[in-house]
Computed example of a mutant assay.
Amino acid sequence: MPLTDLIPAGLVVGLAALIAITWTLARRAITRIETRFPPKAEFITVDGVRLHVRQTGPKTGPAVLVLHGAASNLEEPHLALADTFTGERVIWLDRPGLGWSDRPDGLWSPQREAALIARLLETIETGPVTVIGHSWGGAIALRLAMDHPDQVESVVLIAPALSAWIGDAAWFNTASFWPVLGPLITHFIVPLMGEGQARSGAVSAFHPEPVPDNYLENSALPLLLRPSTWRANARDMMEVNHHLETQEDRYEDTHQPTAIINARADTVLWAHRHGGMVSQRMPRASLHWVSGAGHNLHHHHPAIILEAVHKVREQARNTAGNTAMTGPAA
C-alpha cells in the first residue's frame, strides 16, 4: 500500500502549510538581519572574489591588518579597537565567507585564505603589514606570516587558537551538513532561533568581564545566522583540528616579531596550550598575560593591543636596520 494512502490528506496539507509558513518566517528573519546590518565598507574584488574591506586612518604609511575570529565579521574588532587605533592605518576585513565577503567554491583552508588575503594586500598596495589576529583569526594570521613573509613584518595574536586537538566541533556545526537535519538547521532553526544562542555565547567569550552594552547589535554578529555564512563558519570549525595539525609544525620557522596576548581567565580555549606553549617554540615571540580578562580581551584592553603593535613593529624595523648596516652573512 502506498505510504500516501496511510497518511490522512489533512495531515499532509497541514504539514505542507507548516513548512511553508516556517520557510516564510525564516526568509523574513534573514531579510531583517541583512537590513539591520548592511555592508558599511567597500567591496574589493580579488581574483574574482568579492571581499568586504574597511580602511581607516592615514592613507599612507605602515598598515595594520585586522583578522576577526570565528563566527564574526570586521565590525567585531572594529567595535573594540577603532577608537584606540585612530592614528593608525588599518585594514579591517570580513574574512572570506563571513560578514559580507564571499568565499570561493571548493575546499577551503587557512592556506587558501592566506593566499587570498595576500592578494588583497597586493591589490591595495599596503606594503608589509602588522597583522592582528583574534582567536581563529590568529591561526589565519600566522598562516599569512608563514606563507607570505614578504607581506607581513610583524604579528599580534589575541587569545589565538594555534594548536591542534582543541576538542571536537560543536555538534551543531557537524550536524549542519547532515542530510535532512542539516538544511533544517541552517535554513530554519538558526535564522529563527540563533540570536538567543549568540547572546549566551557572547557571555562565555567575555567572561569574567562584562559584555559591552548592545554588543550583538554593534558588532553585527547576527550576520552569522544567514545560511551560507553559517555553513562557511561551521565548515571551518568542523575541520579546525585538521587545519591546525597541518600548520603547527611550522611555527618554529616564523621569524617575524610576534606578540601573543593571552587572557588568564579565558573559558573558550586553553590559553596556555595555544598562546603559552606556542610562544616557546617561536624564535621571536613574546607572551603577555592579561589578568582578569576573558577571550574577547581586546574590548576591555585595547591599549594593550596598540602597545603590542608598536613594539613588534619597532622590533621588525630594528632588525631590518641591523641587516642593512651589516649586510648579508658571509
Rank of each mutant, 00 (worst) to 15 (best):
D83T: 13
D83W: 01
T84K: 04
T84I: 00
T86V: 09
T86M: 05
R89S: 12
I91Q: 08
I91E: 08
I91C: 05
W92S: 11
L93G: 06
D94N: 05
D94S: 10
D94E: 06
R95A: 06
R95Y: 03
P96G: 04
L98M: 08
L98G: 02
W100A: 04
W100N: 07
S101M: 01
S101W: 01
R103S: 03
R103I: 03
R103N: 03
P104V: 00
D105S: 03
L107V: 14
W108R: 08
W108V: 06
P110D: 05
P110H: 11
P110A: 11
R112W: 08
R112A: 14
R112F: 09
R112M: 12
R112H: 14
E113P: 00
E113G: 10
E113V: 05
A114D: 13
A114N: 13
L116G: 06
I117D: 07
I117Y: 04
A118M: 09
R119P: 01
L120E: 03
L120I: 09
L121S: 05
E122H: 12
T123Q: 12
T123L: 06
E125A: 09
E125D: 10
T126F: 07
G127H: 08
P128T: 09
V129N: 11
V129I: 15
T130D: 11
V131M: 14
G133A: 12
H134Q: 14
H134E: 09
S135D: 02
S135P: 03
W136F: 09
G137V: 07
A139M: 15
R143C: 11
R143Y: 02
R143S: 15
L144D: 10
A145T: 09
M146G: 13
D147V: 11
H148N: 12
P149K: 12
E153R: 15
E153T: 10
S154C: 13
S154Q: 14
S154L: 11
V155E: 12
V155Q: 10
V155A: 12
V156Q: 11
L157Q: 09
L157G: 11
I158C: 07
A159I: 01
L162F: 07
A164Y: 09
A164F: 07
A164D: 13
W165D: 15
G167F: 00
D168H: 08
A169G: 04
A169V: 04
A170F: 03
A170T: 00
A170Y: 06
W171N: 00
W171Q: 05
F172N: 02
N173D: 04
N173Q: 04
N173V: 00
T174K: 05
A175G: 01
A175W: 06
S176M: 01
P179G: 02
V180Y: 09
L181T: 15
L181E: 05
L181W: 08
I185T: 06
I185W: 08
